[in-house]
C-alpha cells in the first residue's frame, strides 16, 4: 500500500504540471486553514473575495483572448488567401498599434476608463466591472496568442503539409482550424493560455496596486472590485510586508509574521505563489508535451 503510494507520487512528480497543480492547491488549502484559524473574519472575507475575483478576471482574460485571437487569425488568413493586401496591412497596423503600447500602460488607461464609467454610473453591477477589467487586460495580452497561432500556421504552410492537403481539394478553413490549430497546436495554445493566465494575474495585481496607491483612493477602493493587488496596497498590508524585511534583521520577531501580520503576508504569498505555480505548470506542461 505504502509502496504503491510512493510509486504513484513518483509517477506524478514526473508529470510536473499535474504535480504543481496538486501541491499548489494543497498549499493554498493549508493557507486558507491557517487564515481561518488566525486571521480576523473581515480580513479573511476580503482575502477570499480578492482571491476569487483575481482568478475570475484571469479566467475571463484567457477566454476573451482566445476568442479575439481566433477571430483575428481567421480574418488575417482570409485576407491573405484572397490576396487582399490592403486589408491585411490595415489589420496588422491596428495590431501593431496595440502592441506599441506597453501592456501596463494600456491596462492602466483601461482602468482609468473604468473609473470614469463608474463615476458616470454607466457600470452598475460588479460583474460588468469584472468583465470589462478582463476585456481590457485581454486586449493588451491577446496579441501573444495571435503571434503564436500565426507562427504555427506559417510554419505548417512552409512545409508540404499545407500544400499537400490543399491540392487534394481540402478547404483552407479546415486545414488551418482542424489540422494546424486543433490537431497540431492545441498543446502550444493551451500552454500559452496558462502563461497568459499568469501574465494576467501579474498585470492585474500590479495595476490594482498602482491604482490603489496612486489614484484617488476613494474612487478606486469604493467602486472597483476587491482583488489581491488592491488588498496588497492597503496600508495595513504594506506594514505587514515591511515586517518581513524587519524580521530578517530581528529573527526573534519572525514568529509574529504568521500571526500578527497575517493579512499582508497572505496576500503577498498568494500573489507570488500563484505566479510560481502557473510558471511551473506551464513549464511542466511544455516539457511533458515537448513543445
Amino acid at each position: 500500500m505504502k509502496r504503491k503510494l510512493g510509486t504513484a507520487l513518483n509517477n506524478l512528480y514526473k508529470k510536473k504540471d499535474q504535480w504543481w497543480l496538486l501541491t499548489g492547491s494543497i498549499i493554498f488549502l493549508l493557507l486558507w486553514v491557517w487564515d481561518r484559524l488566525f486571521l480576523n473574519a473581515p480580513a479573511l472575507r476580503f482575502l477570499q473575495i480578492g482571491f476569487l475575483n483575481t482568478l475570475i478576471i484571469s479566467t475571463l482574460v484567457i477566454l476573451i483572448s482566445l476568442i479575439l485571437a481566433w477571430v483575428i487569425i481567421q480574418k488575417m488568413f482570409f485576407f491573405r488567401g484572397r490576396n487582399w493586401a490592403w486589408a491585411e496591412l490595415l489589420l496588422t497596423f491596428f495590431l501593431n498599434l496595440i502592441r506599441s503600447i506597453p501592456q501596463i500602460v494600456g491596462v492602466l488607461l483601461g482602468y482609468v476608463l473604468i473609473t470614469i464609467l463608474l463615476q458616470l454610473s454607466i457600470l452598475t453591477a460588479s460583474w460588468q466591472t469584472l468583465l470589462l477589467m478582463a476585456a481590457i487586460i485581454a486586449l493588451f495580452v491577446f496579441l501573444e496568442l495571435v503571434d503564436l497561432m500565426q507562427e504555427r500556421i506559417t510554419f505548417y504552410q512552409s512545409l508540404d503539409f499545407y500544400n499537400a492537403m490543399k491540392v487534394c481539394g481540402i478547404s483552407s478553413f479546415r486545414i488551418i482550424n482542424f489540422n494546424i490549430l486543433w490537431k497540431n497546436s492545441r498543446g502550444h495554445i493551451l500552454n500559452k493560455l496558462i502563461a497568459l493566465f499568469g501574465v494576467s494575474i501579474f498585470l492585474q495585481c500590479s495595476v490594482d496596486f498602482i491604482i490603489s496607491v496612486g489614484l484617488s483612493t476613494k474612487v478606486s477602493a469604493l467602486n472597483l472590485p476587491v482583488t489581491l493587488g488592491s488588498l496588497l496596497a492597503k496600508i495595513d498590508s504594506k506594514q505587514d510586508i515591511l515586517a518581513i524585511g524587519y524580521s530578517f534583521s530581528h529573527p526573534a520577531r519572525l514568529s509574529r509574521l504568521f500571526l500578527q501580520h497575517l493579512q499582508g503576508i497572505s496576500v503577498a504569498f498568494s500573489i507570488v505563489f500563484l505566479l510560481i505555480m502557473i510558471y511551473k505548470i506551464s513549464n511542466g506542461y511544455a516539457e511533458r508535451h515537448r513543445l
Binding site: L159, D160, F161, N163, A164, M165, V167, C168, G169, I170, N179, K183, N184
Partner: peptide
Amino acid sequence: GKRAGMVFQHAEEALD
C-alpha cells in the same frame, strides 16, 4: 481535387 491532384514526396511532411 477536381481535375488534378499531387502526391508530395515526403509523406512525413505531407501528412498530418
